[in-house]
């Protein structure tokens, strides 16, 4: 296989004006061209300037990833696009709520796993427990496979650059 044809996972963050339809534009760009979205999170991060931050995890060849970033940058409400996988060191975290059902013995077992994997118990009933777990996607995968849950709700990846790398809406927009 050609090195250019190799598919790679990328974490891309997009800073956008928080206006109606902006998420549909981003998603439509992926679905309309058959690109993958492995994970997607959106929330307003600057209420004064009404900026939202979208974190996208996607998989594709180098050409496809370049295309995705160019297309995202072209959208009118987009301030900045940053490919954290390429642009530098960053941290990624994900949150999941994980429900385990079963008898007393099974629940105690789950509590032990939760304890050494730093998951937090957030709800319990006589026959079930709900854990909150945060960490890298791999850490979440590991926890989930160990406790054998009946239901999982994952928030998707949020990511941020380390140190001096700051994604700010105003930096390049004034030009």
């Amino acid at each position: 296989m050609n090195i250019e044809d190799e598919e790679k996972r990328h974490t891309i963050v997009v800073l956008v004006d928080n206006e109606a339809g902006v998420l549909a534009r981003v998603i439509g760009l992926f679905s309309g061209r058959g690109y993958n979205i492995d994970s997607l999170t959106v929330a307003e991060v600057d209420p004064v300037r009404r900026l939202s931050r979208i974190n996208i995890v996607t998989t594709g060849t180098e050409l496809v990833i370049e295309q995705i970033k160019a297309l995202l940058s072209k959208l009118v409400p987009v301030h900045r696009v940053q490919d954290l996988t390429i642009e530098g060191p960053h941290v990624e975290r994900e949150l999941a709520l994980v429900k385990v059902n079963g008898d007393r013995e099974r629940l105690i077992q789950a509590l032990r796993i939760a304890d050494f994997m730093h998951a937090r118990l957030v709800d319990s009933t006589p026959g079930s427990l709900v854990f909150e777990v945060t960490g890298s996607s791999d850490e979440l995968d590991a926890f989930i496979s160990l406790v054998e849950p009946v239901e999982v709700s994952r928030a998707g990846v949020v990511a941020i650059g380390r140190g001096e790398m700051i994604l700010d809406g105003t930096a390049q927009d004034d030009g």
Partner: peptide, 11 residues
């Protein structure tokens, strides 16, 4: 003028 037209079909 369109960055997304570059390297789309032909590198």
């Amino acid at each position: 003028i369109d960055p997304s037209s570059i390297n789309k079909n032909v590198p």
